[in-house]
Design a protein around this nucleic acid. Sequence first.
DNA 1: TTCGCTCGCTAAACCGGTTCACTAAATCGG
DNA 2: CCGATTTAGTGAACCGGTTTAGCGAGCGAA
Lengths: 353, 353
Amino acid sequence: MARPRIGDVAERAGVSKTAVSFAFNQPEHLNTMTRERILAAAEELGYRPSPIARRLASRRTRQIGLVVPQSTHDIFANPFLPELIRGIGDVCDAQGIAVVVVPPVHGSIATAIKEALVDGLILLGLESGHPELAQLQRSGLPVVALDVEHWDGASVIAIDDVAGAREAAIHLAELGHRDVGVVLIAQHPDTPLDEHQGVSARRLAGIRSGFAAAGAGEAALRVVSAPVSEEGGRAAFEALNEGLLPTAVMTMSDVTAIGVMNAALDAGLTLPADLSVVGFDDVPAAAWVTPRLTTVHQPIREKGRLAALRLIDAIQSGEGRAHSREVLPTRLAVRGSTARARTNYHLPVAEIA
Amino acid sequence: MARPRIGDVAERAGVSKTAVSFAFNQPEHLNTMTRERILAAAEELGYRPSPIARRLASRRTRQIGLVVPQSTHDIFANPFLPELIRGIGDVCDAQGIAVVVVPPVHGSIATAIKEALVDGLILLGLESGHPELAQLQRSGLPVVALDVEHWDGASVIAIDDVAGAREAAIHLAELGHRDVGVVLIAQHPDTPLDEHQGVSARRLAGIRSGFAAAGAGEAALRVVSAPVSEEGGRAAFEALNEGLLPTAVMTMSDVTAIGVMNAALDAGLTLPADLSVVGFDDVPAAAWVTPRLTTVHQPIREKGRLAALRLIDAIQSGEGRAHSREVLPTRLAVRGSTARARTNYHLPVAEIA
DNA sequence: TTCGCTCGCTAAACCGGTTCACTAAATCGG
DNA sequence: CCGATTTAGTGAACCGGTTTAGCGAGCGAA
């Protein structure tokens, strides 16, 4: 009644376990008749080689993990992730490698990584100083890190966050915006706004540099932070809307920007006349909303593809942990959500609407 | 230099392999001092129990698979999938179970399933007659099937496709639409339109029934099919736009509907005045586009959650393959993309615009 | 005829853990 | 003080395959 094992098939076919293994994996090593007999026996028994046992023996899981710092629920609220996975899938599907998302287990990324059934990891949204990740460095597991400055012993795929954000800021500055809301990515709840790291910090620097370069160094930036989701964007709008509304809002992701836009529309504003909004990423939905979202385009799928390629390469080359860093280009996609700054920006939002 | 194994730790700590295993899994069975000594030895060696070996011995992979009939690239083009995964993740994250997407390998779903490292499967977009899935039935692997009428030995989570589509059709009929495009889900390229199965067939039946019930039995349905993606929706619009444009289009998914809308807007039409569009699913993006998409809402995340619960239940109860069928409610979310049928529907689209 | 190869297959070791059955020593109740 | 438990730990079997080393038969070449 129990699941048949390789020994059962061997016995039934009157051969050794080895022969059965050959029948499935290296049929050319077997006489045709013998092979047929073995396969017939397997068929009769409903035998199917155990994937786990096979993976143990081959020391390859044929799986790679995508490590993310949040729950599956939260992380998939951002269309960026599906796009990234599409890119990873382009490479992995072709090689029969499965992709598994690795969210924290009971809040611990280290635990999640320890238990992950993978040959290598792609790290998303993690900074290299992360205390939980020290053990990972020593484990020898091949790793590709996304969007970090540097990762010990790992390949890095990144974009030029500073330049991308800078370009967007210049765009706004040239449209006359001098009072701009900036929505960073929410970190741990009690991280002070000025201690944001990684992506948020680099882009904020780019924004400052952009306004300065455009001769608008005096521009006031109102920095808030929010979870990366449509709801987060809405919350950010509410936060910025206490008192005077800025004339423009820059975000770290399109989904946040869309939340800002939706909240603004719900508040009765006209976009982009009353408020310009700039996103980041250029996910497909950015081109579906009205007005079409002006955003910093990054080649998300290409990023995923490249990450998968580099990781698989590192896995196959056996630990030859490369430490390359590849920077993909960004460009500002100017669409309909940005316009000249409104001149009545000193009015409370109620009067604007 | 090689990865340390449990025996290495045992030797170093002067205990048996069993003791080392206990130190990690059942620390209470060990004297505190001994345990400390073992853990220290493990730490020095950089030992980490092999997840694969552990899974082999425990006969649990702690992974479940989501089987889909298309490539990762194609399947993630539909925001439905991320939402479904969010629901599955709600359940699985809490239990430390990983979710793996299982797309076909070299076009074969059967192969993909054979090699999948999972304790059970959730089936999406597959019909129970599928020839490739006969072996799955016999394998004894726990399965939950989504959106099918029936699946031998598996729990089924579904919605009432007929009723949902019917409600949408009645809505359009009451708005005066009598010439309606219907965009089905593209099957194998040479499947005749009238032989669509499963979801498409049921919804088409619901649409017919709806128009009849609303006293608009004479309404002309123009049925086309397209891949489930924004591009697919655009292609469907082009197909329907050869000759006279219908006054409304019904789709099987929001992303398709959005593609139809975008193509219509690009063609210079005014929505919903010139063309009403109805989606299906109610993914988040449906409420982000302009006009807001009228669509048949289904509880996607709840569907995922339920599927995960039933599957995990089946796995834990050891093969007690339930054959329950749960039908989740749908409701028509009437928003801005539907309006009274235009009266000049006999004009070519060029003149409409 | 004999040497050397290839072919077809096998036994045993191995992948790296968990777990069962059991033992020796320590603890406990009466 | 004795028998019964409990505690702490062990050796061997087991999970279910793959792989290495090698063996006997058959065959071609010398």
